Amino acid sequence: MTLLTFRFAPSPNGELHLGHAYSALLNRQMAAQAGGRLLLRIEDIDITRCTPEFEAGIFRDLEWLGLHWERPVRRQSEHFAEYQAALDRLIAEELVYPAFMSRGEIRAFIAETGKRGRDWPHDPDGVPLYPSLDKALPARERKRRIAENMPFAWRLDIETAMARVSAGLSWAEFTDETMSATRAIEAQPQDWGDVIVARRDIPTSYHLAVVLDDALQGVSHVVRGQDLYSATGVQRLLQELLGLPQPRYFHHRLILGPDGRKLSKSFKDTGLAALRQAGMSPRDIRRLIGF
């Protein structure tokens, strides 16, 4: 019998806060209830912001909370070759294209469109969709720009990608922490437009790395915050395109700050290290987050 596998996957680009504590403790609880495994994964593809100091802080905070996990820990920065192989496959199948427009060019294009009375579409996070004019560039022009080291990102051609998958793309979502019932959620990856799947200097993005990591680690249950609910549609699409297994999902409630917004690593007063230094105990933390 295959053990159910859960994972907690923070990024070492800041200190863990109360929201991370809730997600980590919930993953541990659900794994224990299911008699399953709990993995810790370090999502450090952002090599400019992620540091060894923040990573050490993650281990320190989780150990203080009383969490234990299997070793060795998977670090995304050690697996760029695996992500590159998946990216090469998407390139070969013409599912992605090099996108050269800068942020300034995107803003200017959208502003000009607005002058003509057209409302530009936005993704679920409120970010304007990429104009995707680069899809019309001839192959020769693309190669010339790449050869001249023009900055670009690999973007998923959402229209082509959706045409490759079977109808009725969905995912299985648990209705609560007991995992006693699930419901089918219709995936809407097209709401995100032509999302970035890799950078020129880093052969992956969050979306591409997370689906590969979950598959390679045998993750059966993804338990994470409600803020990633809509992004699941993009990840389900990538799983289908790459022939990866589909985990089951549970998107838990968010721990909000005093202003009602979701917590950020920039909110020092809700950081676990600061709360520990202020004299709080792990029991105080659990009570504070209603756990």
Rank of each mutant, 00 (worst) to 15 (best):
Q188L: 13
D194G: 13
R89H: 15
L40I: 03
L208I: 04
A139I: 11
A21I: 05
R183T: 10
L26R: 07
I196L: 11
L256P: 01
L133P: 08
R107W: 00
E159T: 11
L87T: 03
L39A: 07
G36L: 01
V195H: 10
T2E: 09
D46T: 09
V222G: 03
R261V: 13
I202Q: 03
K265P: 00
L288P: 07
G126H: 00
D194A: 05
K115D: 08
V165G: 00
P203Q: 13
D176E: 10
Q33Y: 02
V127K: 15
R89K: 06
I285V: 01
L208H: 13
V73K: 09
K143Y: 06
F174R: 04
S77P: 06
D123Q: 03
R140Q: 02
A86N: 08
M101R: 15
K265N: 01
D269L: 09
A198W: 07
R75H: 12
L129S: 15
Q76T: 09
R164M: 14
L90A: 05
R49W: 01
P151W: 07
L212S: 11
P282M: 09
A172G: 04
V223P: 00
W120V: 01
R164N: 04
G271T: 06
R103P: 00
E63D: 13
D284V: 03
Q217K: 02
L242H: 08
M179K: 07
I185W: 12
Q76A: 12
T2R: 10
I58Q: 04
L216S: 02
R183L: 09
S180G: 15
T232W: 06
V222R: 01
G57Y: 09
A9Q: 03
K143D: 14
L67S: 10
A231Q: 04
S281P: 10
P245A: 03
D214N: 07
A139W: 13
E105W: 09
L4G: 06
E105D: 00
A274F: 10
R236M: 14
R71Y: 04
D157E: 12
